[in-house]
Structures are given as structure tokens and as C-alpha cells.
Write a protein that binds this DNA or RNA. Structure first.
Lengths: 190, 190
DNA sequence: TCGACAAGTCAACGAGTGATGACTTAGCGT
DNA sequence: ACGCTAAGTCATCACTCGTTGACTTGTCGA
């Protein structure tokens, strides 16, 4: 019994279309009509289901499981973050959606939450040596940079590079941030 | 003799306002009226001076000297790119403007040009070992990631970190990408 | 002093926006 | 078979957008 009018399925199609549109054109560049059109549905349904364009954005960029990165050693943390941000599942591109929706609406706050969630302190806690918080953020910066080069800058070689080929170099970078930089360490605690 | 009606000065004020708006709200989120308002001028002047909103965007994000990064050794290349992208002069934020104007107009092409300009091949040429092109792009990814954390993600520690404090860790990362990753190198040329 | 020219303003256009509420229709239980 | 309810549509509002062409006003040379 295939249902032609299925609220949940329609909701899911709207969310999927919204994720693509927001990732591609940002919040301001995406019209509710366009999203509804992609989902094969009238625009008024968006307001029925999500209340407003803002509600749609929040629902489309919600992180379904923000705890998933907690308590990991830094190497594994970086690897998982890389697979989430740089190799997202089929056209979702959460980083693109959040970066391109800046200033606007809940965008800024969601971006900060997605990128600097509570796990950041966790990771900083596992780092020995100086500036653990800064180095934890630099790990995120590295992943974010790769994600941006892959998902937002058109025509990069990195965009066509598979995860395995990247992993080797990523491990080297992560190691450089996790280990104390050798040589010119200004003395910290005795 | 202070001039009240000064074309060049007005043009410059429009460009400055446009750079800020585009960086903050992206192309679609920026209205010509808002830019003109910031500059204290009527919106029609934008079309007189730049032809269209697109023309304004192109003028505002134009790279005044794209040759400035050519022929540098990778370490110095990364350092200069970092000072351009992550520590831009007073509220210009070219990376933000380009990233937030995606899909749209000349944005994509300009982004690619700014990030993967001709200097990328130069840098790749100076890298020994495997995958020089990929590693050159990874250098850019690193800089881009730091720029995004500083300029687009609100409330980061990195956003409050001065260039000198960052330089030490950046050098470590750049070294990791420039030197061959040790250990698990799959054999390339004998 | 005054007029010409450039710098800047004004009012308006058509198209598209988010949003609303009344409407239609498909599908299920009875 | 039929009506009730929820799923989906339609027409429309008030507003903002980019863009245009006619208009006004400041400034400088003659």
C-alpha cells in the first residue's frame, strides 16, 4: 500500500531539497518556492511544517547527534570530523550550508555549535603541552579548510581526491598539531 | 579645498561598504540600497559607477595584484597567504565575501581564481616527492581553514590569536606538508 | 556672475519574496 | 458508499529587490 499523501515522506523531501539549496546558494539566495518546487510540492506546505523559512533552515541544518565526537583521542577525532565535514553523505554539505548563510538568522550560532561544540574542550583536555585549546581549534581549522576546498571551491584536485589518498597527509598534519612543535618551544611550566 | 562631490572618493566609499556587506551577508543577502546607504549615497549611483550589482561585486572582490604570490618557496608562500586571508586589512575579509557568495554570479570563478591562482602550480613545482599538486592544495586548505575559523566562525579563540602566536603552529603544519610524510610512504620512484 | 557639466537624487517599474488563510482533494474507518 | 480529517493547493497581501531615466544641485572655469 503505497501512500501518495505521506506527511513524513514529504517533510523529508523538503528537508533534503532545503539542505541542497542552502548549501548551494546560502540562506538569502534560497527561496521557499524553489525548495518546495524541488520537492514537488506547494510552498505553503513549508510554512505548515516548519513555521517559517527560518524554521526550515534550523531543521535542515540540525545536528542529529552532537555527542558523537566526545571523548575521542585527537587523531580519531580529526578523522571522524574529516569524514563528517569533508566527505558528507550525498550532497548534504552541512559546512557549505552554514558558511553560506552567515550573519543571518540562527546561522552564526549553529555554525559555532557545529564547529566548536562541547567536544572541543574534550579534545583540548587530551592535548599535552602549551595552548591546548588553540591547538584543538587548529585541528578543526585543518578539517574545515579541507572541507571548504572540497565542497566550496570549484575544480580543485582535492575535490576529486578519495579519503584514503588524503588520509596519509592529514595524519601528518594532525601529528604536527598534536605533538609539541620541536625546536623553538618557549619555556612554559618548568 | 575640500571637495564635497568627489567621484573617486564616493566610489571608494561604495567599494568599502560593499566589501563589508558582501563579507557579512553574502551576495544575495546584500542589497544595493544597503551598500549605498552605508556609503551615504543614493542607490542609483551604484549603477552609474559599476553598471550592475554584479559589477559592484566584481569590483569589490577584485584582486589588485594576483602575481604577488608567485615564485615563493612553500614556507614563505604559506605565510604570505595566511597574512592575506586570515589577517586581512581592516574588515575587508575577501575570503568571507567569496565563500558567502557561492553558486552565484562571478563568485565561484573568482573564488577559484583567488584560491587556486597560477601560483599554485608554482608551489607544486617546488615540492619534492609524491603528489606535489595535492600537497600544494593542502597548504591552501590549511590557510583557508584558519581564515574561516578566524573570520567566519564567531567566538573562536583563534579569532583572538595574534599572528605571532599562530605562526609557530602554522610552521609545524606547513613543515608536515612540505616534508615527505615519514614511515608509511608507498614506494614511488626508486 | 553665470552657465555648463558632472555628481548625486527621486520616483517609479516589474518581478520575486515570505507569509496567510480559505479552499480542494485523497485516503481511511465505518 | 460515504463522509471526516489531514495533506496539499491557490490566490493574494504587503514588501523588497535590481534597475532605469528624468530630474536637481553643487562646483569650477570663463
Amino acid at each position: 500500500m503505497v501512500v501518495r499523501r505521506d506527511k513524513e515522506a514529504t517533510r523529508a523531501r523538503l528537508l533534503d531539497a532545503a539542505r541542497r539549496r542552502f548549501a548551494e546558494h546560502g540562506y538569502a539566495g534560497t527561496s521557499v518556492r524553489a525548495v518546495a518546487g524541488d520537492a514537488g510540492v506547494d510552498a505553503a506546505l513549508v510554512f505548515r511544517y516548519f513555521g517559517s523559512k527560518d524554521g526550515l533552515f534550523v531543521a535542515a541544518t540540525a545536528d542529529e547527534d552532537p555527542e558523537r565526537l566526545r571523548g575521542l583521542p585527537p587523531e580519531e577525532f580529526a578523522e571522524r570530523l574529516l569524514s563528517m565535514f569533508a566527505y558528507p553523505p550525498e550532497g548534504a554539505r552541512p559546512v557549505a550550508a552554514l558558511l553560506r548563510s552567515g550573519g543571518r538568522a540562527a546561522g552564526e550560532a549553529r555554525l559555532q555549535a557545529a564547529v566548536c561544540g562541547p567536544y572541543l574542550d574534550d579534545v583540548a583536555g587530551t592535548l599535552d603541552g602549551e595552548d591546548p585549546e588553540l591547538r584543538a581549534e587548529l585541528l578543526v581549522a585543518w578539517v574545515l579548510g579541507v572541507a571548504v576546498m572540497r565542497g566550496l571551491v570549484p575544480g580543485t584536485l582535492l575535490g576529486r581526491t578519495d579519503p584514503d589518498a588524503l588520509a596519509r597527509y592529514s595524519r601528518a598534519v594532525v601529528r604536527a598539531l598534536v605533538d609539541e612543535p620541536e625546536g623553538d618551544a618557549r619555556r612554559g611550566s618548568p
